[in-house]
Amino acid sequence: MKMADGSTILRRNRPGTKAKMFNGWPDEPFEEMDSTLAVQQYIQQQIRKEPANIEIILTPPDGQDEGVWKYEHLRQFCMELNGLAVRLQGECHPETCTQMTATEQWIFLCAAHKTPKECPAIDYTRHTLDGAACLLNSNKYFPSRVSIKDSSVTKLGSVCRRVYRIFSHAYFHHRNIFDEFENETYLCRRFTQFITKYNLMSRDNLIVPIVEGDTPGSGESEA
């Protein structure tokens, strides 16, 4: 925590900051955030404070526009999923996981191509995250981070559905990586609860069993 002249707090990661102290500034109340990125700042601040407390992380500040809230959360999910993708890169090889599967029921086709095709799991993961990054940053659908058109909010559902498959593949095929990652970030739990709360996917598709009691909706997601 670095204090500038006087009492104002400058929330900055100066070069030389220790990794532990990265973003390690005192919390800023949401009301005082005057930036257009306030929602992202707020979400990241809450996650950093207590990653396990999903309830608080998913509780929007008063008067927050729901579309923006969902959008910013989904951005955060895709961003953190990079971490899972990095870990999967080490183990999930195209030779071993030739198809994107979770249970034996479905083979997922990669939608990043002109004609959807059966990418190996690691490519599916990368392409899905890249595609999500392009869509969520698209000037056409999401030109502003302060207000979002209703027509664009409906796009979020399909992003969620595809992104969720990364969790399910990791869970069913790379359980050790999944557990390690989940224990650190609580990301799948948070994502499941997020989906349930805002009804972004059908519950039948939530196939990763999540520990009971964490979230009210998670028990039903077992399928």
Partner: peptide, 15 residues
């Protein structure tokens, strides 16, 4: 103009 990324390098586990 907008430019879309061609490749994403994933390898770091932090910023």
């Amino acid at each position: 103009l907008d430019v879309e990324p061609l490749y994403t390098f994933r390898g770091h586990s932090g910023p």
